[in-house]
């Protein structure tokens, strides 16, 4: 089982840049991308089918068809995906959308475009660490993508068993 990160972004250039900035994590994690909400839903099904676990979703707000915030709200409402860490990566979400994302989708973080690659990686690492801690997963297979100091207690607990 691998943890998966899904990027939802309609602009190919931006999508590829996100993918490339996250490529240091590829050895440890599954990094996938979708161009819109429908595609993202199909992708999530594939990930589940492959036996992998969706841990983090990075969604643009502005997407053709349904918006990124709507996708996040759906994920939040679904028991299977409620725990998934949700990050909005967007250059243009008005206050109302952002409020909805926080209140109704349990948004965990907001990254404004253009982003700083190092900061992006830090956010992703923090969010994955939170996910592992909350889900009390075995951190060892994913350790390279996590904050090792914070997951240490988890390692100790598991070692005690």
């Amino acid at each position: 089982m691998r943890l998966a990160i899904v990027i939802v972004e309609d602009e190919p250039g931006v999508r590829e840049a996100l993918e490339r900035d996250l490529s240091p994590l590829r050895n440890t994690l599954r990094v996938e991308a979708a161009s819109d909400v429908d595609d993202a839903v199909a992708l999530l099904a594939e990930i589940a089918e492959d036996g992998d676990q969706l841990a983090l979703i990075l969604a643009d707000h502005r997407l053709p068809g349904r918006t990124g915030v709507e996708l996040l709200i759906d994920l939040h409402a679904d028991a299977d995906t409620a725990a998934v860490r949700k990050v909005l990566v967007t250059g243009q979400a008005d206050q109302e959308d952002t409020i909805r994302a926080v209140n109704e989708a349990g948004l965990h973080h907001y990254i404004a475009k253009p982003w700083d690659p190092a900061e992006l990686l830090t956010v992703v690492r923090d969010q994955l660490t939170e996910f592992v801690l909350e889900q009390r997963l075995d951190p060892l297979p994913h350790l390279a993508a996590l904050d090792a100091v914070r997951v240490m207690p988890l390692l100790r607990d598991r070692g005690d068993r």
């Binding site: 190919p12 999508r15 996938e32 991308a33 979708a34 161009s35 595609d39 199909a42 992708l43 594939e46």
Partner: peptide, 9 residues
């Protein structure tokens, strides 16, 4: 040529 993310996958 541009591909959709689904095609790419």
């Amino acid at each position: 040529l541009p591909l959709t993310t689904a095609q790419e996958r």
